[in-house]
Design a protein around this nucleic acid. Structure first.
Lengths: 338, 338
DNA sequence: ATGAAAGCGCTAACAG
DNA sequence: CTGTTAGCGCTTTCAT
């Protein structure tokens, strides 16, 4: 493996100064055609590629943004990442992927940023860190928060209105005549803001319809994942829980729940109408297809990236909080006409 | 936003030379405790963070690997990425994410690598590029290929034995007494190597059992995605296709197929037994649960990363081709006892 | 239109 | 144990 060619080597071969080679590399017009061709030939001959680190050191710009998410394998994050990656590429940025699931420590490390000059900005979906910690740790770096986790007022932030969306979902179930509506996904240990907000909307919708929320209908989970949804709903059915509607914290839990309902011969939606959350791709192909809260992932990605790039380009205003849109996507698990 | 502190600034405040500060930053033992404390205090006071680009420029090491995949939102890739990201983090590498879906050009650009010194190595899942192109474009950079796409002999490569796996899947269906077994997922335009291999295994299994492959049972698709699976299977059913078994190119197509089967009142597995491919997380929670070829994603990730890191650390041998293991995960859509 | 030279912030070899 | 110094490869004034 021959040592990588440098600007200097190209210059030597082409018989010009490095400045000229640099001009050619950057497609600057101020080079005579003949010279340009000679330089181009030398570049090809040596297989010259500009060195990224050197460039960055001098320009101070990396052209990279960090995407800090809990778990890339979770469909919602994977789908959001797809939008983010597409948009970032279109705007000329590369994406450095930081997975934060490993724990609070990792999350803290990512947020505080051990090295400077690694990326130009960070898109961060907080989970474990508190608002205060995020605010304190955040480095001197453009930062945009995504999701319902910690959101210090001073920082840019994008989310959907979780309370309103949960309320809409429950209202939909009420409209179908369901009155014993359960909520699946209350975290036992430390409830996330996400769950807290969704639960709040659930409660509001019930109360505004004169139904007293029944805490027995709020089902706790120990983990996310379909297996947990299945376990908890199986337990509820076997324990004789009486319910005719079910709002799940997310689609994945809903899949597990539906699997449990099927296994116990409970008909969906006849006996229990089910609503999920996230509208991940497969939700339109389950049996029955899943009614779900569909956050506009593309809009979330666009808003987040726009704000981040504005910050990177020097915007200095106070923290901006943007709400992305969502809709209730009605499918067979809780159809309109039932 | 005050200008980032440099080694030199810390040194000035602490009243030592930059070498000493560097020693402290690197936790080198050869610093007197008193000095160390003073330096630490200065670092904290200035909020000093070492500059990544400068470090890289001088060490020539980036501590990053590129992960070049077609589409991160596709569950199989998302799940594989999760393993890769976990392992990379454990080995001290960051992951730069490069999405190649946009087209052959993007794929070519990613493989050829515009800049040098951006990453230490590349994990690449080829789709559109040919073996020859990959071999020609590959830069002077450690490179490991994943999947069934182009795989020049000279380069490291990890995959599962797709022919054998497809054969196993079809054998399983034959064992269940199915004889009219269809294959869903032949690409009309330019079939990928992946599909070609799976189709080959399908054919082999039929022939070894004395069944003449019927080209009418090989169903073409124009795109991936559940909608396409649904469309094609609906068309086949409506066109009167006679089949009792179905091997799908991947789980996502299988979801669409199952949705179409349900819609037409075709019972799974009674009327048609279905087998998917990839064993993505939700496959265990569909109705019915999906029998599928389950590649050992963790093993794929481990083998790939191990080889890549060996190359990064200087290994120079010829291209190594490794087969990761797989198993047929039997679930309700094509159960053993049927 | 092209060249010479001064750093960007850090590491590491070499002195002391 | 600590300081001095020479680059890493590139961009960018400032001359010519």
């Amino acid at each position: 493996m021959m040592p990588t060619a440098r600007l200097k080597d190209v210059a030597a071969i082409a018989g010009v100064s490095i400045k000229t080679v640099s001009n050619v590399v950057h497609d600057r017009p101020c080079v005579r055609p003949a010279t340009r061709d000679r330089v181009r030939a030398a570049i090809a001959e040596l297989g010259y590629r500009p060195n990224a680190s050197a460039r960055r050191l001098v320009t101070g710009r990396t052209g990279m943004i960090a995407l800090a998410l809990p778990e890339i394998n979770v469909p919602y994050f994977a789908e959001l990442s797809r939008h983010l990656a597409d948009l970032a590429a279109a705007r000329g940025y590369r994406v450095l992927f930081e997975q934060t699931i490993t724990g609070v420590d990792v999350e803290r490390t990512v947020v505080s940023g051990v090295e400077a000059g690694l990326v130009d900005g960070v898109l961060y979906h907080p989970v474990a860190l508190t608002t205060r910690e995020v605010a304190e740790l955040r480095q001197h770096l453009p930062f945009v928060l995504v999701g319902e986790g910690a959101a210090p007022l001073g920082m840019d932030h994008v989310m959907i209105d979780n309370v309103a969306a949960a309320r809409d979902a429950v209202r939909h179930l009420l409209r179908l005549g369901r009155t014993r509506i359960a909520f699946l996904g209350h975290e036992t240990r430390s409830p996330t803001n996400t769950t807290r907000r969704r639960l709040m909307g659930y409660q509001l919708a019930l109360e505004e319809n004169g139904i007293a929320p029944d805490s027995d209908l709020v089902l706790a989970i120990d983990s996310f994942g379909p297996d947990e949804g299945q376990r908890v709903i199986s337990g509820a059915i076997e324990g004789g829980m009486d319910f005719d509607g079910l709002l799940c914290r997310d689609d994945i839990l809903a899949f597990g729940a539906m699997s449990a309902l099927h296994a116990h011969g409970v008909r969906i939606p006849d006996d229990v109408a089910v609503v999920g959350w996230d509208d991940i791709a497969v939700s339109a192909y389950t049996e029955p297809t899943l009614t779900t809260i569909s956050p506009d992932k593309h809009e979330i990605a666009t808003l987040a990236l726009d704000m981040l790039i504005e910050r990177i380009e020097g915007h200095h205003g106070p923290g901006r909080h943007r709400l992305a849109s969502y809709r209730l996507r009605v499918r067979a698990s809780a159809p309109d006409d039932h």
